[in-house]
């Protein structure tokens, strides 16, 4: 029942090794890869472009759409190609996680598409996807009030941990999972889901840990954005 030491030796509030790269898909308006440990997400942004069906067009602002999916071989047991209930829901909450910081008022009537694919999964895929998508949006030159950073916090046994691996998620009767996305400048939480078993106090602690982890993630995101242009401005 007790989880006193993490399988991979990390501290309880420590995120996995992070890596990010911006501008990986030339055809897209913006793109990025984000890796958290062994979870790898790639994201591309297309648009603003004509939006179909036309009744979805909003005369006040552009409409954000998202598709999140796992490549079939990114998980141990092959995932059937095509959308599932899970991927449909994640696509939706990803839009809600990103939209609060976007200013789409200049893109009235148009659509902005984000495509997120997980090429390798080891838990936390929606959070890695959101981290990649935020970078792809910035790369696409979409006006944003803040960057969005995302991490999952979980409870394993009685310990609150950030950025769980699959092995940790599956520990004993299964961990509590609480994925979070936030703008670290404003402190606004834009993704919040939870399943498992936690007290109000634990949730408070989890969110505090999430904020700290998101700040770390943001550092990596900022560096990746700047790295794309480093050397070209000197």
């Amino acid at each position: 029942m007790t989880y006193s030491k993490r399988f991979d030796g990390r501290k309880f509030d420590e995120v996995r090794e992070l890596e990010a790269k911006v501008g990986i898909i030339k055809r897209a308006a913006g793109s990025a890869m984000f890796r958290m440990g062994k979870t790898v997400a790639i994201a591309a942004v297309y648009g603003p472009r004509e939006l179909f069906p036309s009744f979805l067009q909003n005369p006040k602002k552009g409409r954000l759409k998202c598709i999140y999916d796992l490549l079939s071989f990114s998980v141990t047991e092959r995932k059937r190609p095509g959308p599932s209930r899970r991927s449909t829901e994640i696509s939706m909450v990803t839009v809600d996680a990103l939209e609060p910081v976007l200013d789409l008022s200049k893109f009235a009537y148009t659509g902005l598409d984000i495509y997120i694919y997980i090429t390798q999964a080891d838990a936390g895929t929606r959070t890695a996807g959101i981290n990649a998508a935020a970078l792809a949006l910035a790369d696409a030159g979409i006006p944003m009030k803040d960057l969005i950073s995302s991490v999952a916090v979980g409870k394993i046994g009685d310990k609150i941990c950030v950025d769980l691996t699959k092995e940790e998620e599956d520990f004993e009767e299964g961990a509590t999972d609480l994925p979070v996305a936030m703008g670290t400048r404003t402190g606004q939480v834009t993704l919040l889901q939870m399943d498992g078993n936690m007290s109000q106090e634990e949730i408070k602690e989890a969110l505090k840990m999430a904020k700290k982890a998101c700040e770390k993630i943001k550092e990596v995101q900022v560096k990746a954005l700047k790295d794309k242009y480093r050397g070209t401005t000197k």
Partner: peptide, 10 residues
């Protein structure tokens, strides 16, 4: 001046 900045940066 001319520093690369990112969305949300003060």
């Amino acid at each position: 001046e001319r520093e690369i900045v990112v969305p949300g940066q003060e």
